[in-house]
Design a protein around this nucleic acid. Structure first.
Lengths: 214, 214
DNA sequence: GGTGACAAGATTGTCAACAATCGTGTCAGC
DNA sequence: GCTGACACGATTGTTGACAATCTTGTCACC
């Protein structure tokens, strides 16, 4: 169905931050922009609403869903539970080849931090979590974490740009990698839980510090 | 929108086990049955596909999604992570009134087991988990656990009917209730993790024992 | 100057018809 | 008797038009 293509295009646009939070998404406009029929857009919006990227109100159409800091905290708490499982599972199933890959990934992360390449580090961060999910091979966990991640993009971006944040999160990431490479499931679980715990405290600090509406 | 009503009706029908797994859901038929337009049914099916209750294939429409035992295990593993969080949060936030409610719920569960009322026990089981989610007040966790639960109904039902299963799960439930009533967050987390761990071993036993296709 | 009713415009929700696709049964050819 | 092409029926995917609803701007009235 062409709706699927439309859904993908809209999703990537949303994830790229192409539309502002709370912005109205008018079906006719989007249909014209993407040069597809309104129903295709409509279906896509329904789909994205189910994924939590947009919110729909009766007779008022779709808006870009704004994720508050409080929600970001909730989402990260849930991620903590699931990704710990993923890390443990990855430690149990990692192959030698994958272990070597993870080692290289860790080196590249260190390099990026040393060189102050924040965006690159942020990308590698996402890549690491994604690679762990692949290694774990846990479809349900993967599906849900990715759904949750989609809702977080904006906040994750903000977080990575905080001064001093990379210096704190890098060793956490390296600890996860080490535990997985050592096939230490419980160690990997704990390292991942600690890492997301650190994300949570950072978010909580933001919650007190900065304003509500940013 | 009328699609929402249709979605709800279809969802409850699916959760009630009114359609067999892998059964095709033909839009025209459902539209006639519910006496609504086909588009309403179509939207509902898309929605339910996003929730994981049905699966859609291009040009081949919707089927009731069959959840394999392996998937049930995955789902329960994820639930273990999230519901542990819920239990801990509930222990932190429970009011005196809610604590009393939980105590009564525990008594009713014990009664049901003593009297051998399996269906009632199964219902109370679901009610306990739901009440804990309410007490925890964690919207994200609630949303995801309920989504996952929807996919499990069939297996949960099978599980509750296993001989000896209520005798094993009752004390686990009571332990959760006690920890929450004692405001012992870590205890509640551990009790919930242990409970779902016990569900997991039971599921694993089923996986070896019975055939694949049941 | 402010408030409420009303009308116009914009936008969404619903429907029925049309086009595209798939699965199945039939039949010719070997 | 078996295989593959073909056509038919069933079902889904898409489109455009129409109805219902909300929002905004205007104006009379207090």
């Amino acid at each position: 169905m062409s709706s699927d293509v439309v859904t993908d295009r809209l999703r990537t646009a949303l994830l790229a931050g192409q539309y502002a939070p709370r912005q109205r998404l008018i079906e006719t406009e989007l249909a014209a922009d993407l040069s597809v029929s309104r129903s295709a857009v409509r279906n896509a919006l329904l789909q994205l609403a189910a994924e939590g990227l947009v919110e729909m109100q009766l007779n008022r159409g779709a808006r870009v869903r704004e994720i508050s800091l409080a929600e970001a905290v909730e989402i990260t708490e849930v991620r903590q539970g699931i990704e710990s499982l993923v890390a443990a599972r990855a430690a149990e199933r990692v192959t030698d080849e994958q272990a070597e890959e993870l080692r290289e990934l860790g080196e590249r992360m260190s390099d990026a931090v040393v060189r102050g390449e924040l965006v690159a580090y942020s990308d590698l961060n996402a890549a690491l979590h994604a690679r762990l999910r692949e290694i774990a091979g846990h479809e349900t966990a993967t599906r849900i974490v990715e759904q949750l991640n989609g809702q977080l993009v904006r906040h994750q971006f903000r977080l990575a740009m905080l001064p001093g944040r990379p210096g704190r999160s890098l060793p956490e990431h390296l600890a996860i990698i080490d535990a997985v490479r050592a096939r230490d499931a419980e160690g990997a679980r704990a390292a991942m839980a600690a890492h997301l715990g650190s994300v949570l405290t950072t978010l909580a600090a933001l919650e007190d510090g900065s304003g509500r509406r940013a």
